[in-house]
Amino acid sequence: MRKSTILFTYLILALLLTACGNEPMEQGQENSGSPDVTKISNDKLISQQPSNEAKDILDNYEEITAIKAVNTKDSLFIAIEVEHHERFTMSQLEKKHKKEMKEHFKDMKIEFSTDKKIVLELEKLEQKINHNDISKKEMEKKFKQIVNLAKEQT
């Protein structure tokens, strides 16, 4: 009985101490590195100029750790990842940045997401565009698919 209590105390102590020890280091790493952004050259199938512009703007915010963006002729899809503790205020952040993007790209339809899946899918699409692995039609189809995926509720 007593042995297990001692073991338990040690376990709790270990958990607490490691948790406290790791946090500042991780934060330091996150702050020192810039967000995960890959720019796509503009001379691809559909010019990715608006996407790159959006990445430039969002790059200035410290809380954003990754930005993925792809655009077609008339719509722009941006997905961001935020620092973990900022997830508590994620809906506000999403609203704020979406509004900002809408104001900046007035003539485009803006889709905005903070979902991990959308980040992954857009990253794949970005890479395909970058390597010229995808035709214009396929790209538009994939873009539409991602838009629908982001709208799914259940």
């Binding site: 991990k116 899946k117 959308i118 992954l120 995926l149 509720q153």
Partner: peptide, 14 residues
């Protein structure tokens, strides 16, 4: 589910 199937954070709960 998010990484390997077509689920988003929203839909992966089910």
């Amino acid at each position: 589910y998010i990484y390997n199937f077509n689920f988003t954070e929203q839909t992966a709960g089910n």
